[in-house]
Amino acid sequence: MRHGKYRFLVGAMAAPLALYAIFVISPYVQAFYLAFTDWNGISNEANPVGLANFTKLWSDPLFLAALRNNGLLLLVVPLATIVLALFFSAATRGTRVYRVVYFFPQLLSVAIIAVLWQFVYTPNSGLLNGFLNAVGLSSWKQSWLAEPDLALWCVMAAMIWSAVGFYVVLFSAAMESIPVELMEAALIDGASSGAIFRRITLPLIFESVQVAFIYLGIAALDGFALVQIMTVGPGGPDNSTEVMGLGLWRNAFTYGKFGYASAMGVAMFLLTLSLAALLLRATRREQVELA
């Protein structure tokens, strides 16, 4: 009986695992290999160049700019998204309508979000400048995406807007699983709502927050699609919104440097992996068992 079960499992899993190995794992492995070559994407020759691609990364001003920008995204986007999501999910407890509304952006593809936000920021007929005009702040009007000091922040706003809804739903679900008695007991003890949130709600949903940090951290190290579609250049003005993914794409598909682009990919992979490990470690806490 037991034997038969494994045979069934192997039979059922073999095809999906093989597909996964061919289409997901093997390209990863190949990218690692290609990162040490000078492959141009067309030739059937790829000459090993050792660590040259990696050492070049550290003197490539565009990659360094990208690293800086991704770093800024990493500092701002996860924290801002989580704070907003916690606020909204706490503020809208029990009102499902809002949650559905907050979730809407999640249903749109990144490309559509980028195009929508481009319309928001466009200088002459855009929503943002139009709004500023209407409320009498026309002196604040800008060519938002064409200002090097503002462009990245504009991209961040779109990124946060599109992510918040998902985490509102995630946090709301986690909050609903907190036993009502706990809240009642705290209320009877005279705890303020701020204290309840800090001392009871947050610790009890901390696992969800931790997951959110990791997901959002990974998203902040990417940002390719929004930047590619929304920004001037793309990646501009003057590389002020350059991100690693964009540099990788450009090197591979417009410069024909697949080896170098793979090295960027490997660097991104390692950065993402160590970020996730670091976050998991740094935010480890005692688990609270509710049963």
């Binding site: 481009q118 466009t122 200088p123 938002w144």
Partner: peptide, 16 residues
Amino acid sequence: IMAGSEALSHTEAQNA
């Protein structure tokens, strides 16, 4: 140059 042109896509500028 028309104000805001530096942020216009080709479609937006050409339509204007």
